[in-house]
Simulated scan of single mutants.
Amino acid sequence: MNQDTKDISIRRAVNADLPKLADFLQFLVKAERPFDVTLKEGKIFYYDIQELILDPKTEVLVIDFNNQIIGCGYAQIRQAKPYQKHEFFGYLGFMFVDPDFRGRGLNTLLINDLKKWVLSQGITEARLDVYHDNEAAVNAYKKAGFKPILTTMRCDISQMDDN
């Protein structure tokens, strides 16, 4: 690590981290709202963070800077589709780095640790979801070795004419 990141470590999340992780989840929702008009108003909880911490098929990591959590992410072992070459894959999610600490390569360090955990489970495929128009995130994931393979598209047909 360079001088900028010498006081930074990545560790497993614990229950004491839950309040900060809940805040991060709402920051993520706020950041993703401009990319997804289908998100409900108010607080949204994509998942139960404590359940993820307790799940043996999930590794939740936090980025720690001087005993302050500044980022997080998880890897979860998931079943692949029956038609895919691999039986299982590691799904990465809840990727967040505090805006004050971005641009220091912390996301890459976090992703690398999550990939190592997935590999330790005997799995060689890693996947994640990212909003197509979120160019900063797309570029960060490309830098970490991810490539797009599928784009989900939507259409609001509520105002469709009968003609």
Rank of each mutant, 00 (worst) to 15 (best):
K30N: 13
K85E: 14
E59G: 04
P56N: 07
E51G: 10
A75C: 08
V62E: 03
D98W: 07
K40F: 06
F45W: 15
I10M: 09
Y74A: 08
L39N: 04
A75Q: 06
R33G: 06
F35L: 09
I69D: 10
F88Q: 10
I77S: 02
A16M: 03
P19C: 09
Y47G: 06
G73S: 11
R102W: 00
C72I: 02
E87N: 13
I69Y: 08
A16N: 12
C72D: 04
L39H: 00
V60Q: 05
V37H: 08
A22C: 04
F94P: 01
A16Y: 02
V97T: 08
A22H: 06
Q50A: 09
F24V: 08
L54V: 04
C72N: 09
T58F: 09
Y74M: 13
A16R: 07
L21W: 08
V29H: 01
M95V: 15
G90L: 09
I44E: 05
P82I: 11
I10F: 12
F101V: 11
D17N: 06
N15Q: 11
F45D: 05
K85N: 12
G73M: 12
D98E: 14
A22R: 03
E41K: 09
V37C: 03
R33Y: 06
I53P: 03
G90P: 05
E41H: 13
G73D: 10
A31N: 07
D100T: 03
R11G: 07
N66H: 10
G93H: 02
K81A: 11
R11E: 12
K20A: 05
L54S: 10
D98R: 06
V29P: 04
P99S: 07
I53Y: 01
G90Q: 02
V29A: 06
A31C: 06
R102Y: 01
N66F: 03
G93E: 08
D100R: 04
P34I: 00
I44Q: 02
A31Q: 07
V97P: 12
T38F: 15
V62W: 00
Q50E: 15
T38E: 11
L39Q: 09
D100M: 01
F101G: 01
P82Q: 11
Q68F: 08
D36F: 00
F96Y: 14
K40L: 09
E32R: 02
Y74F: 15
M95Q: 06
R12D: 11
I10Y: 07
P82C: 04
L25S: 12
K43Q: 12
I53F: 00
V37P: 05
F94K: 09
G93Y: 03
